[in-house]
C-alpha cells in the first residue's frame, strides 16, 4: 500500500485522485470499447430500418437501398393492418399464454432442480444428472423436431406403431390439435430447463459456505437453510432472468412452433404464434413493411412489459432491479 505522505498538500492529493479516477475510467472504457463498437455498427446503425414500418417500400430510380427508403411513400399505420385479421387473437393468445406458462413452469422447475442438485450428497451423480439434463440445450429445434417425429410420425413413428400393433385407433398427431399444447410444453421444458438449471446452480455454488455453517449452528434445518440462505442469494439471478423472459413475452421461439409441429396447417389454432404468422405472411407477400411493423410492435410490447416488471420489482425488492 502506497502511503500518502504528510508533506503532500490537500490540493495535490485532489489532483492525484482526479488523475487516478480519469485513468480508471479510461481503462474501463477501453474494455467496453469492442462491445460498444459492435453494438453501434450492428445494432444502432440499422435502426433507421424502423421507418420501413411506416413506409410502402419499393424500388425507385436509382435503385439503391437508401434511395428506396427515402423515396418510398409514408403510409402511416397501413402496415399494421395485418393485425386486422381473425387470426390475430389466436396468435396473440397463443404467444402470451405459452410464454406465461413456460416462464412460471421453467422458473419453478429449474430452481427446484438446481437446489436438488446442489444438495445431493454424491457429487458424481449430481454431475451426471446435470450433464444429461443440459444435453437437449445443445440441439437446434430442427434436430429436436426429428426426435419428436421419431415418436409421432404417422406411418413409422413409435407411438402410432405401438397403437397399430395393439389394434388401437392410431392417433394422427400432426392432424390432431388436442395433444399439441402438451407436446409443445414438454418440448420447451425438455430443451430449456437444463440450461436454466445450470445458471442457477452456478449461482448457488457461488454462495459463501460460511452462511450455511452459521445457519446450521443456529439450528436451521436443511429446508430452512434453502429458504433463508439459498433462495435469497440467487434472488438477483431469478429476478433478472424473469424480467428478461417477460420482456420477450411477445416473441415466440420460432423453431419450436415451426419445425416441431412440422409446419402442419391443421395445428395452427394451437401452434400459430406471432413469429410464425409473420414469417408465413412474409414468405407469401414479401412485404418488408409488414414484417417491420410486426417487429416494432413486438419491441414496443416487450419494452412495456419489461418496464412494468421492473417497476413492480423495484417496489418489492429495490436491490434486484435490472436498471
Amino acid at each position: 500500500m502506497r502511503a500518502v505522505t504528510g508533506t503532500q498538500t490537500s490540493q495535490s492529493r485532489k489532483t492525484a485522485m482526479a488523475g487516478a479516477r480519469f485513468q480508471k475510467n479510461f481503462w474501463l472504457l477501453t474494455m467496453v470499447l469492442p462491445g460498444a463498437i459492435w453494438l453501434l455498427l450492428l445494432r444502432y446503425l440499422p435502426m433507421f430500418g424502423v421507418v420501413l414500418a411506416f413506409k410502402n417500400y419499393r424500388a425507385h430510380k436509382p435503385n439503391t437501398f437508401w434511395n428506396n427508403i427515402v423515396k418510398s411513400d409514408w403510409v402511416g399505420l397501413e402496415n399494421f393492418k395485418f393485425l386486422n385479421s381473425p387470426d390475430t387473437t389466436i396468435m396473440i393468445r397463443n404467444t402470451l399464454a405459452y410464454n406465461a406458462l413456460w416462464i412460471v413452469l421453467g422458473l419453478v422447475i429449474a430452481v427446484s432442480f438446481a437446489v436438488m442438485l446442489s444438495e445431493l450428497r454424491s457429487r458424481f451423480t449430481a454431475k451426471v444428472y446435470q450433464t444429461m439434463m443440459f444435453f437437449p440445450y445443445f440441439l437446434s429445434w430442427v434436430v429436436a423436431s426429428y426426435f419428436v417425429l421419431a415418436f409421432l410420425d404417422p406411418t413409422s413413428g413409435m407411438i402410432p406403431a405401438i397403437q397399430k400393433s395393439m389394434g388401437a385407433k392410431v392417433t394422427n398427431f400432426y392432424h390432431d390439435k388436442t395433444w399439441w399444447p402438451l407436446i409443445l410444453t414438454l418440448s420447451n421444458l425438455w430443451k430449456n430447463v437444463g440450461y436454466s438449471t445450470v445458471l442457477y446452480l452456478a449461482a448457488i455454488t457461488g454462495i459463501d459456505r460460511t452462511q450455511y455453517e452459521a445457519a446450521a449452528v443456529d439450528g436451521a434445518t436443511k429446508w430452512q437453510q434453502i429458504w433463508h440462505v439459498t433462495l435469497p442469494n440467487i434472488r438477483t439471478m431469478i429476478i433478472i432472468l424473469l424480467i428478461m423472459n417477460v420482456g420477450k413475452i411477445f416473441n415466440a421461439d420460432f423453431g419450436l412452433f415451426y419445425n416441431v409441429p412440422q409446419n402442419s396447417g391443421t395445428l395452427y389454432p394451437v401452434t400459430q404464434v406471432i413469429d410464425t404468422y409473420v414469417y408465413r405472411a412474409y414468405a407469401n407477400t414479401r412485404n418488408i413493411g409488414m414484417s417491420s411493423a410486426a417487429g416494432l410492435l413486438q419491441s414496443v410490447v416487450g419494452c412495456i412489459c419489461i418496464l412494468a416488471t421492473n417497476a413492480i420489482v423495484k417496489k418489492i425488492d429495490p436491490e434486484s432491479t435490472l436498471f
Binding site: F82, S85, G265, T266, Y268, Q272, R280, T285, N287, M290
Partner: peptide, 17 residues
Amino acid sequence: SNEMAALSNVAAQYALA
C-alpha cells in the same frame, strides 16, 4: 395483400388435410 396473408394462413390450416 393483408387479406391474402390472413387467407393463406387460414387455407394452410385446412386445405391440405
